[in-house]
């Protein structure tokens, strides 16, 4: 295939244009033909009826310059173009509409492809209103429980268990669990509404991810770091005004 090969993307437009032109030609041929045949038949009929008339009258009819035209031959609106030409107008309109649709389709496809340009997806963090003051504050309780229970079991399990408590606590406080959210997205979303220590939250989330998804050893240092993060979060939560935004 070389440079002379037809362009694949123009096949549709060429085919559509050819089809519309063919339709126009058919319309023109269809309406020209019968009108001429009809006129000839009228002429024949008039010849039969007026068979005995003089040749002068026939000459007058065949030569409009010399006499008045027949009333049937006179157009109703002489300033209008012929009827067969008028029939081309809707065809042209259809052709134009088809071209517009085609152009629109191309634009939409182009836009769709452009908007389909891809990059790193950043998880949207939805701001959520904090729970009412009157409600049971499950989050401080979960943090407190996590701080007390983090010393139990292996460091990996302790960190993961602490995170599970946090998840359960935030789910119970007007933060519906969204299964598609990563655990860290869920808890970060919830904790962000409390204006807690962002550094502590992020570090705790990182420790959880490491404990949950890695295979390298999770040590006592990780446990101590997680406990420190919990204490910082508790301290921030207990601060006056921490639960309001």
């Amino acid at each position: 295939m070389g440079p002379d090969s037809p362009r694949p993307s123009t096949h549709g437009a060429v085919a559509l244009g050819a089809l519309v032109l063919l339709l126009c030609a058919l319309v023109a041929a269809t309406f020209n033909g019968p009108s001429r045949v009809g006129l000839e038949r009228d002429d024949d009929r008039s010849r039969v009826v007026e068979e005995g008339d003089s040749r002068e009258r026939a000459d007058q009819r065949s030569d409009p310059e010399d006499g008045q035209p027949e009333p049937d031959d006179e157009p109703w609106l002489p300033w209008l173009p012929p009827a067969d030409l008028l029939l081309l107008v809707p065809s042209a309109l259809i052709f134009g509409a088809a071209l517009l649709v085609l152009a629109r389709l191309r634009v939409v496809r182009r836009r769709r492809r452009l908007t389909g340009r891809v990059g790193v997806r950043h998880s949207p963090v939805t701001e959520v209103a904090p729970p009412d003051e009157a409600e049971e504050p499950a989050l401080p309780g979960a943090l407190d429980e996590g701080a007390r229970g983090i010393g139990e079991g292996s460091p990996r399990n302790a960190i993961v268990a602490t995170w599970v408590r946090l998840e359960q606590a935030v789910e119970s406080e007007h933060f519906p669990h969204r299964p598609a959210e990563t655990p860290s997205e869920l808890v970060e979303r919830a904790l962000a509404s409390y204006h807690l220590d962002a550094e502590a939250i992020e570090r705790l989330a990182a420790l959880y991810r490491e404990a949950r998804f890695s295979r390298h050893p999770v040590t006592e240092e990780h446990r101590a770091e997680a406990a420190a993060c919990l204490r910082r979060l508790l301290a921030t939560l207990g601060r006056p005004g921490a639960r309001t935004r």
Binding site: N157, V160, A161, W163, V164, E167, R178, P179, A180, E181, T182, P183, Y208, A211, R212, F213
Partner: peptide, 12 residues
């Protein structure tokens, strides 16, 4: 936004 992500509870 629809497919459940791996959770902490899967791990426990």
């Amino acid at each position: 936004g629809q497919v459940p992500a791996p959770t902490a509870r899967d791990r426990t």
